[in-house]
């Protein structure tokens, strides 16, 4: 019925006219009204702060200007020059944390996707207790994050943690072995982040596996394809669209993750575990250096946006149609 109304309108008026006067259509007006509250909120909390943050990245804003932010001196690109110059203290730390963020993201995405795919494949078979296994596997993703990460912190303790105890019993490590300080702290945050998110990849890939038509496998079997051939030439290509979305979202999420490194490593992490989000947070709020913090946030945002754009291209490519974010 709606379609008929709309096409009727479009038939009578030229397209440019209907674009100029969209309010003519009662349905359209209703739709905009429905969207208004959501977009009003987003304008205040998302769009305004992004513009504001962008402005702050060009001023020298410290503690004395907090209540009179508009009087802070404009310094142009100086903040950006500082964070990109590796010879300054903040620049050196910025590059180092950017590098750690990239390593963390790459490790996490590979880990989460591989584990998620493996789990989805194992669950994509009929056996007793399948539903129970599918429910249990989601638990890391459902469990409240802070208590879960604190538990990991307890397990990762060098002297009294269960992980080192098990590794020592297996003869894999000797003496004190630090996870939460020093070069292995990046391993610790990657493991915990992987643990928390592989269930999401599993459920997405499981849905993807379920939607592969059975006939494809039957046809391949008649052609004499084995287990590996079926996986390589049917499963993987069929999972490609959903995989692209998963990998892109995981990349962005890993890039901007805060909770896991913050809770696991605290406010003063070793360089190895100092990812960009954590560094910006600590730098901005311990030195009250909002200008530099905003400049670094803007860079982080631009990187995330480039990734998001790739995600968007994928969606309008028509291969993905919404669903869970």
């Amino acid at each position: 019925m709606l379609e008929a109304v709309r096409s009727g309108v479009a038939g009578r008026t030229p397209e440019w006219a209907s674009r100029l006067r969209p309010s003519l259509d009662a349905d359209t007006r209703f739709a905009y009204k429905l969207l208004l509250p959501a977009f009003l909120m987003m304008a205040i909390i998302h769009f305004l702060p992004i513009g504001w943050g962008f402005y702050i990245s060009f001023v020298e804003l410290d503690a004395q200007f907090i209540s009179k932010w508009w009087t802070a001196p404009v310094v142009g690109l100086e903040n950006y020059a500082k964070i990109f110059d590796p010879s300054t203290i903040v620049g050196a730390e910025f590059w180092s944390s950017l590098k750690q963020t990239v390593i963390f993201t790459a490790g996490s995405v590979v880990g989460i996707y591989t584990l998620g795919l493996g789990t989805a494949l194992l669950l994509n078979e009929d056996f007793r207790g399948n539903l129970i296994a599918r429910t249990l596997v989601l638990i890391p993703w459902i469990a409240p994050a802070v208590p879960a990460v604190l538990t990991w912190q307890m397990m990762f303790r060098s002297d009294t943690g269960i992980i080192n105890h098990l590794l020592r019993s297996a003869g894999l490590v000797e003496g004190t072995f630090f996870w939460l300080i020093g070069p292995r702290s990046i391993v610790a945050i990657t493991v915990v982040w992987t643990w928390q998110n592989f269930p999401w990849a599993t459920i997405m890939l499981y849905a993807g596996l379920q939607s592969i038509p059975e006939q494809l496998y039957e046809a391949a079997e008649t052609d004499g394809a084995g287990r590996w051939e079926k996986f390589r030439y049917i499963t993987l290509p069929q999972l490609k669209p959903v995989s692209v979305v998963i990998v892109l979202l995981l990349t962005v999420w890993s890039f901007i993750n805060f909770t896991v490194p913050y809770i696991l490593l605290g406010s003063n992490p070793s360089d190895s575990g100092q990812v960009l989000m954590l560094f910006i947070y600590n730098y901005a709020f311990s030195n009250w250096s909002f200008g530099l913090g905003a400049a670094m946030s803007t860079v982080l945002f631009l990187v995330a946006m480039v990734l998001a754009y790739a995600y968007y291209r994928r969606i309008i490519g028509g291969e993905f149609d919404g669903g869970a974010i």
């Binding site: 359209t28 805060f258 670094m296 968007y312």
Partner: peptide, 28 residues
């Protein structure tokens, strides 16, 4: 249910908010 001008752009901005790093919002 509805089709209206700017729909895909609005949908995109909904998705875009998922990509915003928290610290960028936190300072302002």
């Amino acid at each position: 249910r509805y089709d209206f001008p700017g729909k895909s752009k609005l949908e995109l901005s909904i998705l875009g908010t998922q990509m915003i790093p928290g610290v960028l919002i936190l300072l302002p």
